[in-house]
Structure formats: C-alpha cells, structure tokens
Design a protein around this nucleic acid. Sequence first.
DNA 1: AACGCTCACGTGAACGTTCACGGACCCCCG
DNA 2: CGGGGGTCCGTGAACGTTCACGTGAGCGTT
Lengths: 345, 345
Amino acid sequence: MLADDQQQPSNDPAGGAPRRRATIHDVAKLAGVSRQTVSRAVNDKGEIDPGTKERVLEAARLLDYRPSRFARGLVRKGTVTAGLVIPDLMNPFFPEVAAGVLEAAERRGWQVVVWDSRTDEAREREALDVLSHQADAVVGYFKNPDDVLARHLGGVPLVLLERGPQQTRFAAVGIDAAAGLAAGLAHLVHAGHRRIGMLDGVHGPAPRRQAFLAEVRRHGLPVDEGWIAMCPEHSVAGGEEGMERLLDTRPEITAVFGFNDLIAVGAMRAARRRGRTVPGDLAVLGFDGLSLGELVEPGLTTLHIDKRQLGRLAVEQVARLRAGEEPMSGADAWVVPELVVRSSA
Amino acid sequence: MLADDQQQPSNDPAGGAPRRRATIHDVAKLAGVSRQTVSRAVNDKGEIDPGTKERVLEAARLLDYRPSRFARGLVRKGTVTAGLVIPDLMNPFFPEVAAGVLEAAERRGWQVVVWDSRTDEAREREALDVLSHQADAVVGYFKNPDDVLARHLGGVPLVLLERGPQQTRFAAVGIDAAAGLAAGLAHLVHAGHRRIGMLDGVHGPAPRRQAFLAEVRRHGLPVDEGWIAMCPEHSVAGGEEGMERLLDTRPEITAVFGFNDLIAVGAMRAARRRGRTVPGDLAVLGFDGLSLGELVEPGLTTLHIDKRQLGRLAVEQVARLRAGEEPMSGADAWVVPELVVRSSA
DNA sequence: AACGCTCACGTGAACGTTCACGGACCCCCG
DNA sequence: CGGGGGTCCGTGAACGTTCACGTGAGCGTT
C-alpha cells in the first residue's frame, strides 16, 4: 500500500521509451480493464469492485500516472483560473492585497496565478500575453494605458486595482483618496500646520496628489509644484531621497504627506538625519496603514486602508463580470481610508 | 478596428441561447471559413489572406471568442504550472521567497498558482488536493508529515521549503541553521553574554532550536527547557507575548535569540516595556534579515538569509525532479545565513 | 500545353478525459 | 423457470484545439 515510491523520478522499467507521460489507456491496458474503470478508480466513484480498484491503482502507481488536467478540464467545466498581477512584492502593501484576492478566490473555488511585474510596463504586457491565454480573468495593478491593456488582453475580463472607475473603461476597485486626505489634512491643520509638503509616488495628476492639492487649497494653504517631491522608488530609500530634496527646496515645511507608508517612513528617517525631530519640527503622515507603521519610532500616523478587503472586492468584480452583471462602481467599489493617529503627526 | 467593445458583458445578440462559450466552430461558421483558418487567424500564423484574417478576427470579436486553454493545452504540450503554498503572507519573509519562486519560474516560462495555507494543516491538505490535480509540481511550506503529504499529492513532485533534506523523503531546500547560529552565538558570547534565552517558533526539535542548543552547549552556557519560550504566533505580537513569559521564568537572561525577526522585534518591544534597555540590559538577535529590522529602534542584529535565492533554489529543484535528475542535496540546496550586526546585539 | 510552384484554404485525425449509455452476470423471489 | 433488480464493467461519443496532410486555383516557365 502507500508505497514509498514517492519522488522516485524514474518510471520506465524497461529503460526503453523516451519518457512519454502515461495516459489512462496505458493504465487500463496494464490493469486489464477499460479506460472508464480506471477513471472510476482514480476519481473514486462507485460502481467498481474493491479488488479491481486496488489493481488499477497499483497499475497507476507503477506507471506514475496522473490524469491530464487539460483533458479533464476540457470535458468537466468549471475550473476557473484568475490572474493576479502585482507590481512589487517587497512592499508589504501588495502581499496583503494578494491575501485578500487569494482568500476570496479560494472561497469561490478559483485558483490564482500570480505575476510580479516589478512596476515595469513591458513586464506588465508580458504578463498579460501569458494570462490572456491561461486565465479566465485578470486582476492587478497596471501602469499601461487602457488601450494597450486591451490589445494584450485578447478579450479576457480585467479588473483594475487602485484606479478610480472614472479613469478607465475597465472594471475597477480603488481607494477613496479624497475622503482619506480630507481626514488627514484636517488632522494636520487642526494641529496648526500650514506649510505642508508632499512626497508623491506617481507622475501626473494621480488621485492622491489631486486629493492632496484639493484639500490644501480648501484649507487656504500655500502650495505649488515646489511643495511636491517625486519618489519614483516607492520604498523607504525612495522616501529618504525625496525628503532630502524636499527639505532643500522648501525648508520651511512643518508637515509632510507621504504617498505611502514606506515613503513616509523614509521621510521620517531623512528628517531626523537632518536634525529635525518628528513630530516636533516635522509632522509626517503616511498612507496605507502598514503594520510596520506601529513598529517604527515614532509610530507613524497614517491613513489606514483595508487591503484585504480591496483584494476581496476585486474578486467580486471579476465574479460580476463573469456572470454578465454590471460591475460595482462608485462607493461600493471603493474602500475608504481611516485615519490612524500615532505619534508622527 | 480596436473596438471599444471591451468589458461589454453581453454577446448573445439574439437574446436567445443560454450563454455557451463560443468555440472555434462558431467563429468558423460565422466567418464562412474552416476551423483551421480561424486557428491561423487568431494565432497569427502565415498562410492566410489578410482580408479573410480580418473577417475572421471580426467574427471572433463579435462572438467574444477565446480559445479554450484546455483544448489548446491538450494538443500543444509544454505549459508548465507549479503550485506554491505559503503559510503566512503577512510575514514579509514569505513574499520575498515567493518573489524568488516567481522570478525563477517566469524565467523558465512556467506559471505559478499560489495558495495561502495560513499555517493551517487542514488548509495545507486542501491546497494539495487541488494542486495535485492542477499543477505539475508543488513547492511550499508544510507542517503535515511526509506520509500525509504523499497521500494528498497523488504523485505530483513536491519540493519542501525550510526542511533539511535529512528530515524528509521529498526534495527540499532549506536554511543552514547550524552555520547561522554558530555565527550568531559567537557574536553574543564574544560580547560577554552567558545567559541566553530563546523565543522559539515551532514545537519539538526543529533545526533552529537544535542549532541553538548545540551552540549554547558548545560554549558551555547554562540552558534547559526553561530558557526557551514558545511563540506559536510568529508575529511581533507573538514575540511580545513570548518575551513576557520568558522574562517571568528567567529574569536573569541578558540576551535572547528570536526564531525570526518578527518575534525578535516583539521581544525588543516587550523588554523595553518592562523597563529593560536594548541592547544594554538585553541583547536581541533575530533570524531572517527582514528589511524591517533596519527600520526599528534600535536596529535589529539578525542572521540574514537570502530569501529570493531560497525561492529560486526551490524552482531549480522542481526542474531537476521533472527532468528525472537527482535533486540537489546538502550544501547546494542550503542557503547559509549571514550575520548582520546592527544595534540590538 | 504540360509542368511545377506558391498561396490560400479545408479535411481527417489526434490529444486524454468524462459522460451517457448499454450489456453481462449474479442473486433472489414468485 | 421467468423475471426483476443490483453490481460491475465496457463502448461510442463528445469536449475544443492543433497538426499533418491534401486540394484546387492561379501564374509563370519551357
């Protein structure tokens, strides 16, 4: 029984054939039964004599037989595979989103194949080229514009993460940056800050920057391009580097909003290295709510978002698309950040 | 061209049939050509008139046709899918291993379906039940014993992460805990510590505990079960909680080794909360080398391991298994930790 | 005019399963 | 002895592609 033939790489006892995978036919022949009986044995359905079943199973083991998932999938419908494209696994934000996707997918009996695009547009396209053939739907983060995505998608449904619905013709789930920054800026302003900079992470009029600018103006604070430094890196190092520049161009700032928590942490470190205390000389506000934020000194005040929920929502969007329903839009597809006040601001 | 029919959920213009997916036949019929011509068009091979190609593509678009990956996989060999089972996506350690797996898999043209077992043995088995049908090989972390794994594996090759080769009959890649702890303990002893505790993460004689005990004894230091506290949680909170207990039972310790960096960080926090300074009153040594360790205050001295490399190695093991070669063993399949000295010890 | 070549396209077969049948056999009961 | 019912097993067909051919039209060459 339960032979310890595991991991023995070689079947092929005669040392002959060039190693073709055994099929159900081979097993049937060896066991002296029909395909159907083999099928009954390996899928243990009823209608089979325990004796023959054992014989068949033994034969299968001997030949190292494993049913072809393709042949099986062809006749049995219902195996759903979703593709997930993640830009940066080193940023703790994304694994948590992925966890939400995985959780929701598993609950539906779907499987998820994951691609790491490393925020590279070419790699995004490669991922899509593969997934468009192998997946029934794709969800992920993409920098490529809609039409490029569509071209590499070949008709598979796509759910965009992080983009507001109005900015894309695809289904999407996103973050209500406006609501988040309203709360965040209110907090800073209430604490007396009037010269607030930003460490942005993406070029152009992206939601977080837009929301930041809107809130800054709403409070009547001074602002122009000089108050915003770019951090292409989206990491602690990137944040440090951006903060250095920001302190050079606008040394008068008393508070800074980071595109994400990693950048915000970097900002704190750079500021302290330049002799500024946090939050005394400089208040720092993050965005994401990584658990890292409460480990760091001082604790990072941040706009916490429910990343797992984001992932779950994305899967639900996929489900709607597949069912032919209208995808959620507006508030239903948005997760709103919650201000978590710690020591940094 | 490039119609903006994307994301339009409905084909089925007559409002009739109960939504069967269009096949290559349907497209052929609509375009008035044969299957083969459709195939030529969608895979853009040669031997087709540009005019008919356009007609076929248009028909395909109309019917929302996408080739069945099963039918295709059945006839075209060569699509390899690996399963990856991860215990805890919230621990930054594992995403980094996953990144290595993804990287190596992509380089080989494989795809990876990921499962989150949440360190639950039942969920591990569920993952295997699915992956044994859908994947050509599995790599991952498992708590289940070998025979259980084999039973749920149904013959698919398995590569174990984190287990030393001698402890399993499967192929494996792992960490040379002995070498790591030799360096780590030497560092602590050199700094004058003689009463060293451990915050362990797994029950029983696991490699890290064994290596710890061996080194402690080699240096002639006192030790017994009381010097080791369990942290079932493998998180910062788990480390805090374990440290509390350890300080209760062995208040005389001057240094502590944490099963991983998360636990070690928890230990630092708990110790400081109890009024001990780090590293003054208590030195803390971690294991993993998370980037989080340099963000925390004081910086965590730790045994850094190349997690990406670990993932890459695992994929290479899979490749060997599939090729019928002997898997690597011993040093080739081990990654050895490197002591990174920061402030905590 | 016969030949050959290229181009565009179609035809059976194969890939490896499962599903819906149908048939053989045995046992028991009237 | 005839049937009724159960258990076990086998036989086409179907799933949706691609591959290896085959075919006919068109065109140029000798």
